[in-house]
Amino acid sequence: MGDADRHVAKGWSQPDQVERPFMAGQLHEVRDVAASFATRCGATPGQVDAVLLVASELVVNAVRHGGGRGEMRLWHDQGSVWCQVTDGGPGFADLRWTQNVTEPIGRGGRGLWIVRTVAEALTIESGEQGTTATARVLIG
């Protein structure tokens, strides 16, 4: 592991990547990190809002459904900001429903719909060790 990798693993940032562990009650800090990162990457104000919304929704889902804590990773690559949120919760029993969210589901259940509406792409991997959601937001 190189020096830059060690810093990122400890929650430090590089110009094109940042990792941030989070737990319940830290949404404000996570939102600040996401907005600051998108701004540094050259996103327009509207694109910063999109990254902020995607990061917020994925983190809230991890806190509510994934054990109350997790890690957010942001990186910039080829005109996109990627937001990946990993948690250690029980995972989804059936991922098929997450692929077909085309409208809000009841009182709750809007998070993935919002992310799918705002992001260019969203992938979700889930198993016994938890869930990882990765979203791509176009910038530039």
Rank of each mutant, 00 (worst) to 15 (best):
A135V: 09
A135N: 04
W97Q: 11
T123C: 06
V137D: 05
T44M: 13
R107Q: 12
E125H: 13
T102C: 10
A135T: 04
T86P: 03
T102S: 11
T132G: 01
E71Y: 09
L52Y: 14
E128F: 00
A135K: 07
G109V: 08
W75V: 01
E71M: 13
G111R: 07
Q99Y: 06
V137S: 08
G66V: 03
V81F: 02
R136Y: 00
A43Q: 09
E120K: 14
L74N: 03
G111K: 12
A119Q: 05
V54T: 07
T102K: 14
L58P: 14
G88M: 03
A55F: 05
E57P: 14
L122V: 11
D49R: 08
V85I: 14
R69A: 11
A121V: 05
V51I: 11
P90G: 13
N61Q: 03
V115Y: 06
T102Y: 08
V85T: 13
E71F: 05
G46E: 13
R107D: 14
V54P: 09
A62G: 07
E57D: 09
E125V: 12
G127T: 11
A55S: 15
G109N: 04
V59H: 04
V101K: 08
W82T: 12
G89T: 07
D94H: 09
Q84H: 02
I114V: 14
T102N: 10
E57T: 10
H65Q: 11
A133H: 10
R69I: 01
E103H: 15
S80R: 15
L58K: 09
L52D: 15
R116L: 10
D77H: 13
G70N: 13
T117W: 12
I114A: 04
R73E: 01
P90F: 06
E103P: 03
T98A: 11
V85D: 03
P90R: 11
G130A: 08
G46K: 05
A55V: 15
N61P: 00
T44E: 10
V60I: 15
T131C: 03
G127M: 11
F92S: 01
V51C: 07
V137H: 03
A55G: 06
L52K: 13
Q99V: 05
G66C: 01
G46W: 04
L58H: 05
V51G: 02
G46M: 09
I124V: 15
N100D: 05
G46N: 10
H65V: 02
V60R: 08
G127I: 06
L95H: 02
L95N: 01
E120G: 15
R73D: 00
W113N: 06
Q84D: 01
G108C: 15
E128N: 07
G109K: 07
R96K: 08
A121F: 09
R73T: 07
R110M: 15
R110L: 14
